[in-house]
C-alpha cells in the first residue's frame, strides 16, 4: 500500500516537473507578446477562458476572454497583432505554486497561481491580473499541451483593460 502511494506521488511529482517547465516557457512566450506562439501551447479543440472570480463563484459563465478551440485563439492572436490599438507596454507573467492534482488516463489535472505585472511608458509597474489556473493537460507526440486552461482572476476590478492573454 505504502509503495503504491509512493509511486502515485512520484508520478504526480514527475508530472509537476513537466508542467512547471511548460508554464515557464508559456510565461516567456507571453512576456515576449508572441501570441502566435501562445496558441501553440494548446490542443486543436482546447478551451481557454479568463473569468472573474466573482462571476465564477456565482455560477455566471461570462468570460473576459472565451475561446472554444484553437481557431478562436488564432483569431485573437491575429486581431491583437494586426488590428488592435493599445499603449506600448512590458509584460511580466509569473506562474508559481504549480500542482499536478490527478492523472486520469491521458489527462493531467493541474493548477497554478499566476500574476501579470504590466509596465507602461512613464508609469510605475502595476499588477494587471492575479489569479489561478485550472488546467487539463494532455500529451500529444511526446509533449504536453493544454486541453483546457481556465484563468480565474481575483483582480476583478481591471485596471483599464487586459490586452494580452494570461
Amino acid at each position: 500500500m505504502a509503495t503504491m502511494l509512493d509511486s502515485k506521488s512520484a508520478v504526480l511529482r514527475d508530472a509537476r516537473l513537466g508542467i512547471e517547465e511548460f508554464n515557464y516557457a508559456y510565461a516567456e512566450t507571453l512576456d515576449a507578446m508572441d501570441v502566435d506562439g501562445w496558441v501553440e501551447y494548446f490542443t486543436e479543440d482546447a478551451f481557454y477562458h479568463v473569468i472573474a472570480r466573482d462571476n465564477a463563484e456565482s455560477g455566471l459563465p461570462l468570460g473576459l476572454i472565451y475561446c472554444e478551440g484553437k481557431a478562436m485563439m488564432r483569431d485573437r492572436a491575429y486581431a491583437l497583432l494586426n488590428t488592435e490599438m493599445f499603449a506600448p507596454r512590458y509584460l511580466h507573467l509569473s506562474i508559481t505554486n504549480t500542482r499536478a492534482l490527478a492523472i486520469d488516463g491521458d489527462e493531467i489535472r493541474a493548477s497554478a497561481n499566476y500574476t501579470l505585472i504590466e509596465t507602461l511608458v512613464e508609469e510605475t509597474s502595476r499588477i494587471q491580473q492575479v489569479g489561478k489556473y485550472r488546467d487539463v493537460f494532455v500529451r500529444e507526440g511526446g509533449r504536453l499541451l493544454l486541453k483546457e486552461r481556465i484563468c480565474i482572476y481575483d483582480s476583478v476590478m481591471i485596471d483599464n483593460c487586459l490586452v494580452f492573454p494570461v
Partner: peptide, 28 residues
C-alpha cells in the same frame, strides 16, 4: 445560444477587441 453569446462577447468588455481600444483611447 448562451455559448454563442459568450463567444461573441470576445468583442466587447475590458479585454474585447473594441473594449481595449476605447479604453486605451479615452485614457490617452
Amino acid at each position: 445560444m448562451t455559448r454563442h453569446r459568450l463567444r461573441q462577447n470576445n468583442i466587447f468588455g475590458p479585454a474585447g477587441f473594441l473594449g481595449i481600444e476605447d479604453n486605451e483611447a479615452l485614457k490617452f
